[in-house]
């Protein structure tokens, strides 16, 4: 209780207060919505939201679908499942910074492995992290590789709890692979899929480490500036804790709204 009070609840309350205060000469004064106005007027504000939403959408396309497909494939193997599970989970065990730096080397336009491969295949080389149109996608790919192991194992556990009779019944009805997935697998794992979707949206909206290490945070022409990176800039590089708290509050409100909508939707579906 005490740990939560001091390391979680108190900072949350303090952040809420800071969002409406300005601290100068050691004195905090109430400034109403000034911090929010400052944040909204920041030229990087809308760009950061656009980039964060783009990351979230791309991370869902890759980070949501890929682990599910991987889990489906592993589930089909009758031998060596333990080995495959370990293989998929290995990247999660690497320290995130090490994984990101690994990708930084892979993406290097000069000596990076990916461009070496492209050269070998006579394909045009790419500026993975240095092309404003490609940089966010490159960040998402690295992030997906780093994080998909955990999600894949959860999906796999959900898949293995589906009774085999359902598939047998579907087969008797003449269902092929895709119809079995659509009519049996997805409905049976709907709950876990929804939960993972919610958790992934909440996590991906707070993306920081990957762009910070891969592109220095902002990226080419600001193309990987995310909301949390902007919060970091306000707090630690511009010494403006009020603005950082205000932007954090906006993010909190958005995520809380999303969570509430999710809860309402799932209740409506249950009814």
């Amino acid at each position: 209780m005490l740990c939560f009070a001091f390391f979680s609840w108190y900072p949350m309350v303090r952040e809420f207060l800071l969002a409406f205060q300005k601290t100068e000469s050691g004195q905090s004064t109430w400034v109403g919505f000034d911090n929010l106005v400052t944040v909204v007027n920041d030229p990087a504000f809308w760009q950061a939201w656009r980039n964060t939403l783009l990351f979230t959408v791309l991370a869902l396309v890759f980070g949501f679908v890929v682990p599910f497909v991987v889990a489906l494939v592993i589930n089909e193997f009758h031998h060596g499942q333990g080995y495959l599970r370990l293989l998929v989970y290995l990247p999660v065990m690497l320290p995130p910074v090490a994984s990101v730096l690994l990708f930084k080397y892979l993406y290097d336009p000069g000596y990076g492995l990916l461009n070496e491969l492209f050269r070998f295949l006579h394909l045009p080389e790419q500026q993975w992290l240095q092309d404003p149109d490609l940089s966010m996608l490159s960040v998402v790919i690295a992030s997906t590789w780093m994080n998909m192991g955990g999600a894949a194992l959860i999906y796999l556990a959900a898949l293995q709890s589906i009774p085999g009779e359902l598939y047998e019944a579907a087969e008797l009805d003449g269902a092929g692979l895709f119809r079995k997935i659509w009519h049996v697998t997805i409905p049976q794992t709907r709950l876990i899929l929804s939960l993972m979707l919610l958790m992934q949206v909440i996590a991906t909206m707070q993306v920081f480490v990957e762009p910070f290490l891969l592109t220095g945070g902002a990226g080419p022409e600001g193309s990987t500036t995310t909301v949390v990176y902007l919060i970091y800039q306000y707090a630690f590089n511009f010494n403006n804790y009020g603005a950082a708290a205000a932007l954090g509050l906006l993010l909190l409100v958005l995520l809380a709204g999303f969570s509430a909508a999710y809860v309402k939707l799932s209740r409506a579906e249950d009814e």
């Binding site: 030229p43 990087a44 500026q127 092309d131 404003p132 902002a218 022409e221 600001g222 800039q233």
Partner: peptide, 14 residues
């Protein structure tokens, strides 16, 4: 500098 980073990255990556 944060703003001017975009000028530099624009020049050197595009």
């Amino acid at each position: 500098y944060k703003v001017l980073d975009n000028v530099m990255s624009g020049l050197l990556t595009n």
